[in-house]
């Protein structure tokens, strides 16, 4: 599914990732954990193709193809989905309209027929019920005036509707209280399947209660410094990252 080899990335001339390797197979869940400033968000933006992230060496293969040559929308069309740490506000564009435009763009890309309006509403209703998303939220402008929890639920809704094959969750649990975390976590959990992979980027292990990782990687100073199973996450909860920060330095 995803293969990252010796990835080096610069932002504004500053080296952020310094030789990252990662191998993620279809249906697997991997967690990437690490302290602030270790390069977690940089990784998610490089994978999704945001401008301003310069790959100085290394390569990324996604489903056997060179990911770095693709535009952001091409990656999305091929099933790569990023749940943003800070979802972006788009004034005046209703969430429903946004969802439909996105879903149809991806269907077009895949050579599938576009949704007709009625079918789409039905399709979305299914997903919204589970995520406790009201019709009112769908009418409001994308993320505008949404609370932290609403924004993250909206990200999960988009994930459900766009049916990706690789989901990258960037700090999806940040800023959520316990109740909001449960709704979001259960929403994500419901999307697990044999063919869908997850890359869960997080500082705290609490989201991993809902989506149990097959592998846990510790990212520090731009590279993976330790890999283990789910126990590693619990260990980190107790010890924190100080050990790795010293090691990496």
């Amino acid at each position: 599914m995803l293969s990252i080899e010796n990835l080096h990335v610069c932002v504004d001339g500053k080296q952020i990732l310094t030789g990252l390797d990662l191998e993620l197979k279809g249906g697997e869940v991997h967690a990437i954990m690490g302290p602030n400033g270790s390069g977690k968000s940089t990784l998610s933006y490089v994978l999704s193709g945001r401008e301003g992230y310069e790959v100085t060496s290394g390569k990324i293969l996604y489903q056997g193809e060179n990911l770095l040559e693709m535009d952001p929308e091409e990656r999305a069309g091929k099933g790569l989905f990023l749940a943003f740490q800070y979802p972006v506000e788009i004034p005046g564009v209703s969430s429903m309209n946004f969802l439909k435009t996105a879903a149809n763009s991806i269907r077009k890309f895949r050579g599938e027929a576009e949704f007709d309006a009625m079918d789409f509403v039905k399709f979305v209703r299914e997903a919204t019920k589970k995520l406790n998303i009201t019709d009112d939220m769908l009418k409001r402008s994308v993320n505008s005036g949404f609370s932290g929890g609403e924004k993250k639920r909206n990200e999960v809704l988009q994930m459900a509707v766009l049916e990706p094959t690789l989901c990258i969750l960037d700090e999806t649990d940040s800023g959520l209280d316990v109740d909001a975390l449960r709704v979001v976590g259960e929403g994500i959990s419901a999307l697990k399947s044999k063919t869908r992979s997850f890359l869960v980027i997080t500082h705290y292990p609490r989201i991993l209660e809902y989506i149990v990782p097959d592998r846990v990687h510790v990212l520090a100073s731009g590279k993976i410094v330790k890999t283990g199973n789910n126990d590693l996450a619990h260990e980190l909860e107790k010890t924190g990252y100080s050990e790795y920060m010293i090691d990496a330095a």
């Binding site: 929308e73 999305a76 989905f81 309209n97 946004f98 763009s105």
Partner: peptide, 26 residues
């Protein structure tokens, strides 16, 4: 970031601009 957000959701740049501008004019 608005453009990138839309493109990450699969829209072409032109589609994204049309969508954002329509929102701006709503």
């Amino acid at each position: 970031e608005q453009l990138f957000y839309c493109r990450q959701r699969g829209m072409s740049e032109e589609e994204a601009v049309a969508l954002i501008v329509n929102g701006f004019c709503r």
